[in-house]
Design a binder for these strands. Sequence first.
DNA 1: GCGACAATTGCAACACGGTTGCATTAAATT
DNA 2: AATTTAATGCAACCGTGTTGCAATTGTCGC
Lengths: 136, 136
Amino acid sequence: MDSRERLRAHHLRITDTRVAVLDLLHGSETALSQGDVERALPDQADRVTLFRVLQAFEEAGLAHRVMDGHGVARYASCAATCSSGHHHDVHAHFRCTDCGGIYCLEAVPLPQVKVPKGFRLKDSHLELEGSCKACA
Amino acid sequence: MDSRERLRAHHLRITDTRVAVLDLLHGSETALSQGDVERALPDQADRVTLFRVLQAFEEAGLAHRVMDGHGVARYASCAATCSSGHHHDVHAHFRCTDCGGIYCLEAVPLPQVKVPKGFRLKDSHLELEGSCKACA
DNA sequence: GCGACAATTGCAACACGGTTGCATTAAATT
DNA sequence: AATTTAATGCAACCGTGTTGCAATTGTCGC
């Protein structure tokens, strides 16, 4: 689906920056940080705007957020079935310790776990680390 | 084991601050951030010192580091079998979205996963989210 | 196409954790 | 006790994340 259509479908106004960022995310194999986007689209927009664009994408269900190992947020485009407040990115993430890239591993499901008595489980994240196919 | 003994066994010099921090970590049910330690031990030491103490603990195998959901590092005391460069904290972590506390769930093992061809897996982290027994 | 309204953007500024360099202090070794 | 080696405190810096506000721009009805 075209980026403009996707924005419209998720009730976000269509601006040059949003289209450019969404295209970028969609074409990237790895999740991108705000800084990555900034570097990939120089002079496109202020860093605060990029921050807010990515924030809006996440809230709207257009992208999901993954934390890298150093506390920096990275974003990857969501499956088509995600919508505002309802993400379905139930897969593992692989972080390459060489290049820093984060890959969504759709094929790796999240395990069913049992938590101790009294704890209430709402969400789970599985993060794998190692070398990606480009670095190994 | 006494904190002084543990420091000695891991080839770290024994200082008031290190003993205090190690005692604190050992007595805490949840993983603590540098800020947590700072607040728990006011006037004990400079924040840079606390940063370096926690860093030294991790390198020495006295504590392991867990990232909270917002990119802040938290530390929990390690099992006795951990040593410099060889951590054995192969368990899941539970983050309470209400109080922010992070619990080590020794009873929850890490799943065996298969990564795509070309990827080389070295480490994995399982992070669970929800409400802890105190908040639920 | 034009105007009105609401959403988006840019800029300045700040918060906070993480991090380094360097001079000072303190622990371990003899 | 003297020497060596590591730990500490302080100042300072970086990058990400964040907010407030004024200026700009997209969208919708006409």
